[in-house]
């Protein structure tokens, strides 16, 4: 499982950093390293670009996993450089950005956009696999999640737009229900295609979602 991100347009980063002249940069050694959006190289590149804009980069680091507790420790080690900065630019997914923001009062600014939580499908290709809907039905859909694999998140079968097994929004993408049908067929469970699914409960765990594990 990985948090899939893409770098923001540099122009957008430039705009939001406009009021700040001293920047500390965080990268992440896990997800954004793998997607080349916030690893060692990208952080170095960002340092260069900000310096070209005339900003002072007070320091930078690539933490092992930005969303982890260890981040707080690492932040302490960079205490002075962070102290010298007027804003913190974070090149991890939004989980890491929020973790860092929770430890510090200074403005913390994301340099990447978080797209989805994905699994590696084929080498280098990540696909969204779960929307954390709180009512998992993939036991009846051959292990394929229609909430994320179908553009419309339908659960009762294909819409009228499916064509040659592809989705109406993009001829390159599979229609979830062709995939589900094919796999249920192999499993000898095609009767499940005809099972009616009731309207979903969108508030299994109402937002803001918080769970306490004892």
């Amino acid at each position: 499982m990985k948090s899939i991100t893409k770098q923001k347009d540099f122009e957008a980063v430039k705009e939001i950093l406009e009021p700040f002249d001293r920047i500390f940069i965080f990268g992440c050694g896990t997800c954004t390293t793998m997607t080349h959006t916030g690893g060692v190289e990208e952080v170095a590149e960002m340092c260069g670009k900000l310096q070209e804009l005339g900003k002072l980069v007070t320091g930078s680091t690539v933490v092992p996993t930005a969303c982890d507790e260890v981040t707080e420790e690492i932040m302490k080690q960079h205490g002075q450089a962070i102290e010298n900065a007027t804003a913190i630019l974070v090149m991890s997914c939004a989980l890491g950005v929020q973790k860092i923001a929770s430890y510090i009062e200074k403005p913390v600014i994301p340099a990447v956009d978080t797209l989805f939580i994905g699994v590696e499908d084929t080498p280098g290709t990540f696909k969204e696999a779960c929307d954390q809907c709180g009512q998992c039905i993939i036991g009846e859909t051959a292990g394929i999640c229609p909430i994320t694999a179908c553009h419309k998140g339908l659960v009762n079968g294909p819409c009228g737009g499916t064509s040659n097994g592809k989705c109406e929004v993009d001829k390159e993408r599979d229609c979830a229900f062709t995939l589900i049908y094919n796999r249920l067929k192999i499993q000898g469970r095609l009767d499940l295609m005809k099972k009616y699914h009731e309207p979903k409960n969108y508030h299994v765990e109402p937002r803001p979602k918080v769970i306490k594990v004892s």
Partner: peptide
């Protein structure tokens, strides 16, 4: 509605039967 020329047809027909149901 139904799309009689859908390809593959089977998932379409499963949905069709659900609608009648």
């Amino acid at each position: 509605i139904v799309t009689p020329e859908a390809n593959p047809i089977e998932p379409q027909l499963a949905k069709f039967e659900k609608k009648i149901e």
